[in-house]
Design a protein around this nucleic acid. Structure first.
Length: 623
RNA sequence: GGACCCGUAGCUCAGCCUGGAUAGAGCGGGUGGCUUCGGACCACCAGGCCAUGGGUUCGAAUCCCAUCGGGCCCUCCA
């Protein structure tokens, strides 16, 4: 820890002073100061003002005289600001050494939160009947980044993907194959998931409009899918597996990987539901309705809202009856009915497992905490699930990480040949109103490739491809992570191709520039020398920003907020770009200064790489 | 009818959790900067009753209440 330590030490010191003065303990803050107000600031004078019946200024002056930094050489002094704040200044002649050396360590920015506790992150969870679209990408990237941040905080993370292979959406394409005679091979080498989503699903659901008999068949087909011995079920298995494998290719291209796939169809057959149902009954968590609208149903009482029906009067469980046992399984609350086998080796050579009802291999993918990434339209359902889980385990063990949806801009809708009323439109698989993830990635890769090629005449084809891939993936990831979870993302095809300003490529560019500096000199950075020579504002700002990595990791873990890391990465790049412009490293006056600056550049690179790494974004040497 | 979310510069958004100093970025508009460590850049200018009205507080973009505008969910569908 670097900056967090500094803050903690000042906090302790301040608390001691309050003790010595016999002042009441107030909840004061010690945090990084805005530019122009020292480096670190404390608001304790404001909080004491009332009980001491003195102005914050008076208290500030009084307290500022009490500090002694003999045991904290990195702090130069504290000043009382006329506003009442206590502003601390860093002694950069000492701080520089400390920061630069620590930033070189492999685990720089790592924090101890999890104590290696097992935690489950579930994300993606898309029906295997279509290709992934931009809306799914938000879910996938959020889940992936959260899992990386939790690993950085020393949790033992299992990443799961729940494969919804037995719902009506799957039944719809099976209707297309079995009733409408769509070929089970995609024409013209089209990617199979695109074919199923763009053609079979859209055409079949379109036909429902005119053919009500066909629409009636979907429920019949669904029933057959759930009967594992049926012919239809076998077809559905084959088709959904094929789609899933194509979806996984897309996800891997985005640099996202899982530990295990959980199939809904197997959860249904595992009898987990029956176990949980009995448990719910015996624990009085649910009740049977004798009269009223819900007569004959088992319901979950929800305070302030309508009760949720769990089992219909005909004895058939509703869809929530799949989520509850799965949630309980993730938390390790039930005996694991599954065995595990290898599904595939992923693009990063990590093994991907899948659940199976046969076999004899036992693995453990559950956790004492669970984070489920699902968009906020499911918030009501998720509240019910987490409420139930809180009855079995401590509150907060099951967390729903929700976020707002992705919509399409009017321009983008028009470019799909469709019309809109407002400025944006919700995506819809049925209407063909969506933009596939593969399409976005391809378009963006092409754009970056062209851009990079026009700037670099001497790069080989494979280097250009590599850069295009790194920047394109980074750009998509960054745009999905940057906005607040509560904000709707309006996706616009044209806008998504921006590479200037607050974008990933700007951040990556700062890294590439740093690489150029190091490449153009024969001097090998020597980290044994002192760094007190780094004393300009630009150098100090950069060092402070590097030092603050842990503050932001801490924030992002505490609040499960990946955007904090995106913002930090951008700020770090901005600070470096300013340094780059104003401090000519290779033109340094002395060899000592040159060396110190080269070390700072290396320190910056390591930190930015680590920060981008949390976002799953690569830092290119050239672009 | 009930639940949740959003409303900050022309546009897209940070800041709100945990109240405090001058409300920050990017895009777009305007101006300047390469005898070059890469202009995917830097420096600067213009642009804000922080939706509205109340309340709490020494102090509110931030907390509370109401209202308005927008979104989304609320089926014995999945």
């Amino acid at each position: 820890m670097v900056f967090l330590n500094l803050l903690e030490n000042i906090r302790n010191k301040t608390a001691e002073i309050l003790d010595a003065k016999n002042y009441e303990h107030v909840k004061f803050s010690v945090e990084s100061a805005k530019p122009g107000f020292g480096d670190i600031t404390c608001n304790v004078p404001f909080l004491l003002s009332k009980q001491l019946k003195k102005s914050p200024q008076e208290i500030s002056v009084e307290l500022s005289k009490m500090y002694n930094f003999d045991d904290m050489p990195q702090i130069k002094n504290v000043e009382s600001h006329p506003s009442g704040y206590l502003n601390f200044s860093i002694d950069y002649t000492k701080f520089n050494d400390f920061v630069i050396r620590l930033s070189l360590q492999e685990n720089y920015g790592t924090l101890e939160f999890g104590n290696n506790e097992k935690i489950v992150v579930e994300h993606t969870s898309v029906n295997p009947n279509k290709a992934l679209h931009v809306g799914h990408i938000r879910n996938i990237i959020l889940g992936d980044v959260v899992s990386k941040i939790l690993k950085k905080a020393n949790y033992d993370v299992s990443v799961l993907n729940y494969v919804d292979d037995s719902g009506l959406q799957v039944a719809d394409i099976i209707v297309g194959f079995t009733e409408l005679g769509f070929s089970q091979e995609s024409p013209n080498n089209e990617k199979f998931d695109h074919y199923c989503g763009d053609t079979v699903y859209v055409k079949t659901t379109e036909k429902y409009e005119s053919d009500k008999e066909l629409e009636g068949k979907r429920h019949e087909i669904l029933k057959q899918i759930e009967d594992r011995s049926s012919e239809v079920s076998k077809i559905a298995q084959t088709i959904t597996r094929k789609v899933l494998n194509e979806q996984l290719k897309t996800v891997w291209n985005l640099g996202v990987f899982y530990d295990c796939l959980n199939f809904e169809s197997q959860i249904i057959h595992s009898k987990l539901w029956e176990t949980i149902f009995e448990k719910l009954k015996s624990d009085n968590q649910i009740k049977y309705e004798d009269e009223g609208d819900n007569a004959g149903c088992w319901v979950i009482p929800a305070d302030g809202e309508d009760d949720k029906i769990l089992v219909r009067s005909n004895g058939v469980a509703t869809y929530i009856a799949k989520d509850i046992p799965y949630a309980a399984w993730k938390l390790g609350l039930v005996d694991d009915p599954f065995h595990y086998k290898i599904h595939s080796t992923q693009k990063n050579s990590q093994t991907l497992y899948e659940t199976t009802l046969e076999g004899d291999t036992k693995l453990n993918f559950s956790g004492s905490k669970v984070i489920t990434v699902i968009d906020n339209r499911q918030i009501r359902l998720q509240k019910i699930v987490s409420g139930l889980m809180a009855k079995f385990k401590e509150k907060g063990a099951y967390t729903h990480l929700g976020y707002e949806s992705v919509t399409l801009s009017a321009d983008t809708v028009k470019s799909l040949g469709l019309s809109v009323d407002g400025e944006s439109a919700q995506m819809s698989g049925r209407k063909g109103l969506y933009v596939n993830a593969d399409t976005v990635l391809e378009t963006l890769t092409k754009r970056v490739y062209d851009e990079s090629k026009s700037r670099n005449e001497n790069l080989s084809e494979s280097e250009l491809q590599n850069i295009a891939n790194i920047v394109a993936v980074g750009t998509i990831r960054y745009e999905m992570i940057k906005p607040d979870l509560d904000k709707i993302i309006t996706f616009d095809l044209k806008n998504s191709l921006r590479l200037e300003g607050d974008t990933c490529s700007y951040i990556q560019y700062s890294y590439a520039r740093a690489s150029r500096i190091l490449e153009k000199t024969d001097v090998k950075p020597n980290f044994d020398s002192g760094f007190e020579l780094l004393s300009s504002e630009y150098e100090k700002n950069l060092i402070k920003k590097i030092a603050m990595f842990d503050v932001h990791v801490n924030d992002s873990v505490n609040n499960l907020s990946p955007k904090v890391i995106a913002k930090y990465s951008y700020e770090l790049a901005v600070t470096f770009s300013s340094f780059y412009e104003h401090v000519k490293v290779l033109a340094s006056e002395t060899t000592e200064l040159l060396n110190a600056r080269l070390c700072l550049v290396v320190s910056f690179q390591k930190t930015l790489k680590a920060s981008l790494g949390l976002l799953g974004i690569d830092a290119p040497e050239r672009m």
